[in-house]
């Protein structure tokens, strides 16, 4: 086995031990925070594939999470409550009206549906570049939340679905986080990964080397959406209640801030971003409640984002290749144009 693979095996064992110890010795509140950190990490690590490595600055992640959350909720919803909640019965191709999906396949199905949605909207949206892509993907969030509000027969509309069975625990969460990190790490460190980074750096240059831009962009978008869908499913089965409002632009904003703050296009960056911002949130929560300035934490997030953009745009762990391009260097290096 190669060394990095071995590192993942050891990392996996250590992670399991850590999770085991945490579940034994930490109180429920701390475990609650750890699970949220795990779920947000899955979302942020997967967003890193599209936004960080492929350079497609998508703001649509919340929509994929919503799809995953609603799909896995509907698939696993207990039969006796289904009528009371006026939720639809499953059609024959999803197992029929008397079938309830187990948790793991339901999560995968939620991810798959999110991927399918990514495939559909990716084809037109990924033709756009830069800000146009961001705005169009944001439009997708609006579409999905609006649909969730209006398709009352399936989603119960704005009031949302509650009494979702609590399946998500710290083990499930960190198992999925491990899978997500491993899969994305594998993708990035392959020939494919080099190709998507090449597209990010210089699309024309990559194209003339034989990289098909559309195929690769779409693939990274679809893979990112899958794990976003899984994160959504985990979230639904953790909070036990979902409403369309929770998957609005605000969720996207949080994940994007976590990613940028941690460092886009790095393996550790997204997780570092999640851990630092969520820790900050829960550390400041008592203060916020005491001062009764609700939304203070969001303000701090926004200010932090501005500060990071100004002083360390590559994020906490990010390395910038621009470091050597300061004017002084250009003067000393003969003919440096880079």
């Amino acid at each position: 086995m190669k060394r990095p693979e071995l590192a993942f095996v050891w990392g996996g064992i250590l992670l399991f031990l850590g999770v085991f110890l945490a579940s034994q010795f930490l109180n429920r509140y701390l475990i609650h925070i750890l699970v949220l950190i795990g779920i947000y990490s899955i979302a942020t690590v997967s967003l890193n594939l599209t936004n960080g490595y492929a350079g497609l600055f998508s703001l649509g992640h919340a929509a994929f999470m919503a799809i995953g959350a609603y799909a896995s909720t509907l698939l696993t919803f207990p039969l006796p409550l289904r009528e009371a909640y006026e939720l639809p019965k499953l059609p024959w191709f999803l197992g029929g009206p008397d079938f309830v999906w187990p948790f793991f396949p339901a999560l995968c199905m939620g991810g798959a549906l999110a991927s399918f949605a990514a495939l559909l909207i990716g084809a037109p949206v990924l033709r756009l570049r830069g800000h146009y892509l961001s705005v169009a993907s944001l439009g997708f969030v609006v579409i999905v939340t609006t649909l969730a509000k209006t398709m009352k027969g399936i989603t119960r509309g704005p009031m949302g679905i509650s009494a979702i069975p609590l399946y998500t625990n710290i083990y499930w969460t960190y198992l999925w986080l491990f899978i997500t990190v491993y899969v994305i790490w594998r993708i990035v460190h392959s020939r494919f990964g080099r190709a998507i980074m090449a597209l990010r750096e210089d699309e024309t240059a990559a194209q003339v080397l034989g990289v098909y831009p559309m195929k690769y962009k779409l693939f990274s978008f679809v893979v990112g959406a899958f794990f976003a869908g899984v994160a959504g499913g985990l979230y639904a089965h953790f909070t036990k209640a979902i409403r369309p409002l929770e998957f609005s632009f605000f969720l996207t904003f949080q994940i994007v801030v976590m990613l940028i703050l941690g460092g886009m296009g790095t393996t550790a960056g997204p997780i570092v971003g999640v851990v630092s911002l969520l820790t900050l949130r829960y550390a400041l929560k008592p203060l916020e409640e005491h001062l009764k300035i609700y939304g203070m934490i969001e303000l701090i997030y926004a200010v932090l984002l501005i500060v990071v953009m100004l002083w360390k745009p590559e994020g906490i762990v990010g390395r910038s290749p621009g470091k050597k391009k300061r004017p002084t260097r250009v003067l000393e290096g003969g003919g440096s144009h880079g």
Binding site: R191, R194, M197, A206, G210, V211, P321
Partner: peptide, 18 residues
């Protein structure tokens, strides 16, 4: 058209992409 944030070797390997 150098891929700035990739290493020299990664750039070269991308040349052999096809």
């Amino acid at each position: 058209g150098i891929f700035n944030r990739l290493t020299v070797e990664e750039n070269l390997l991308l040349g052999a992409y096809s």
